[in-house]
């Protein structure tokens, strides 16, 4: 394949993604069980209108939710890209490797324990527990990956995910509090019920993770050639690998803490972005993945909310319908198997 001008291609894709983000963002705060016209949205956003039910719906419900979908979608896609790089496996992602489920389990435990002791659950504690869960699962997967080839790794990850989900179910079933309903909804995966407080925490942690990912993009590029070549080029492997795993876990655990497990974003988005860009240079792919993940989650959340409005579908159901075919496509395209 010959390229006239790669820089133009990168810019073009970035432009398209940015426009899509903007359009979907507006659509997300405008559509729903109550539709708000675009003029009213402009009025509400720029301060011309400052009360009424539309104002409340947009500022307290839809705005934080759309921001969360934007940030968390981006976080998931970047985290997926990092995982695929780490394991040199195109379908590795926090969800596939069971890391999301590990985080989910810890968050469920956090909720149940805090509720039973009457402690209010803060955004921070959710993130901390979620991160701890991710790390426990990641360490398990890492130990496993030393002894297994990549297809076994994937199957092992999926199994670990099932185990964590099963324990989560036990926890939820035997916890007697009525607040458990919330946990149940959350464990299905959803962007609903996200408050401004949550959004603040999300922005801080996701931005932090994103900047970290960006900072290690140079060693990531060397690592993409394989461990041997990375070492040869002067990458300090143990430091780099730890940084990669921690960054990926910060990003994915933030998602699990607030939206529960969201499937397929981490696999599908990086793949599509790489194909669109025609490269896998991390310095391009990381920001592009972030925008791509944002677009994907904004779109899927819009569908989840409006398809059978006023009933909401879980976000994972929608992401899976678009994402699973892409995974199958990746597997078919790769001659080597997983």
């Amino acid at each position: 394949m010959e390229f006239y001008n790669l820089k133009k291609r990168y810019l073009f894709v970035f432009l398209i993604l940015s426009v899509l983000v903007a359009v979907l963002f507006v659509a997300n705060i405008s559509f729903g069980s109550v539709s708000v016209s675009f003029e009213n949205i402009a009025g509400i956003l720029f301060g011309a209108q400052s009360d009424g039910s539309e104002y409340k719906i947009i500022w307290t419900i839809r705005m934080p939710r759309a921001i969360a979908a934007f940030m968390l979608g981006g976080a998931l896609a970047v985290s997926g890209f990092l995982m695929q790089t780490f394991f040199h496996n195109p379908i590795a992602s926090p969800f596939v490797l069971g890391i999301s489920s590990g985080a989910e389990l810890f968050v469920a435990l956090n909720m149940v324990i805090f509720i039973s002791f009457g402690i209010s659950i803060s955004s921070l504690s959710l993130i901390v527990f979620s991160f701890a869960g991710s790390m426990v699962c990641t360490v398990f997967i890492l130990m496993f990956s030393k002894k297994a080839n990549s297809s076994v790794l994937i199957v092992g990850g999926i199994m670990a995910g099932y185990i964590c989900s099963a324990i989560t179910d036990f926890v939820v079933t035997f916890a007697s509090d009525t607040d458990i309903v919330n946990i149940h909804n959350w464990s299905m995966g959803s962007f609903s019920g996200i408050s401004w407080k949550d959004v603040n925490a999300i922005i801080i942690f996701v931005l932090f993770g994103f900047i970290l990912a960006f900072v290690i993009s140079k060693p990531i590029s060397a690592y993409q050639l394989g461990e041997k070549y990375a070492k040869n080029l002067g990458v300090n492997l143990s430091v780099f690998k730890a940084a990669l795993i921690i960054t990926s876990s910060i990003l994915s655990s933030c998602v699990t803490a607030f939206a529960g497990p969201v499937s397929f974003v981490g696999v599908a988005v990086p793949h599509v972005i790489k194909s669109l860009m025609g490269t896998s240079k991390p310095i391009i792919i990381i920001p592009a993945c972030f925008l791509g993940g944002a677009v994907y989650c904004l779109l899927c959340d819009l569908i989840a909310r409006t398809l059978f409005s006023p009933i909401e579908v879980s976000i994972s159901s929608v992401t899976a319908i678009f994402g699973a075919p892409i995974v199958i496509f990746i597997l078919l395209k790769r001659k080597k198997g997983i």
Partner: peptide, 17 residues
Amino acid sequence: PYAEKYTCEDIVSMGRY
């Protein structure tokens, strides 16, 4: 190396790492 979507120029440039 299995370098997905890297052009040969990208690979050579990696030597400047």
